[in-house]
């Protein structure tokens, strides 16, 4: 199996991460690296933005950085 798409950027995947712990945009981008999803940088940003807008996660500042999280 090619390794180029072993990770999928989906709403469910993002939801699972944000339920587990608060994450910054950079934390999320690390989970969905382009080399793992096969998406371009631009696609990754656009898709992740759409997903976050739909999920509308809670936000809190930790160490001066905005973190997103969800509760079950």
């Amino acid at each position: 199996t090619p390794s180029s798409s072993d990770v999928q950027l989906t709403e469910e995947a993002v939801r699972r991460y944000l339920i587990r712990k608060p994450m910054t945009t950079k934390d999320l981008l690390k989970k969905f690296q382009t080399k793992r999803t096969g998406l371009s940088s631009e696609q990754t940003v656009n898709v992740l933005a759409q997903i976050l807008k739909r999920l509308n996660p809670e936000r809190k500042m930790v160490n001066d950085k905005m973190h997103f999280y969800l509760t079950e």
Partner: peptide
């Protein structure tokens, strides 16, 4: 690279700022 990651994070935050 980490600078590309920084750029992507900045682009994502810009997208979200319009919304949030």
């Amino acid at each position: 690279s980490s600078s590309e990651a920084d750029e992507m994070a900045a682009a994502l935050e810009a997208e979200l700022n319009d919304f949030m």
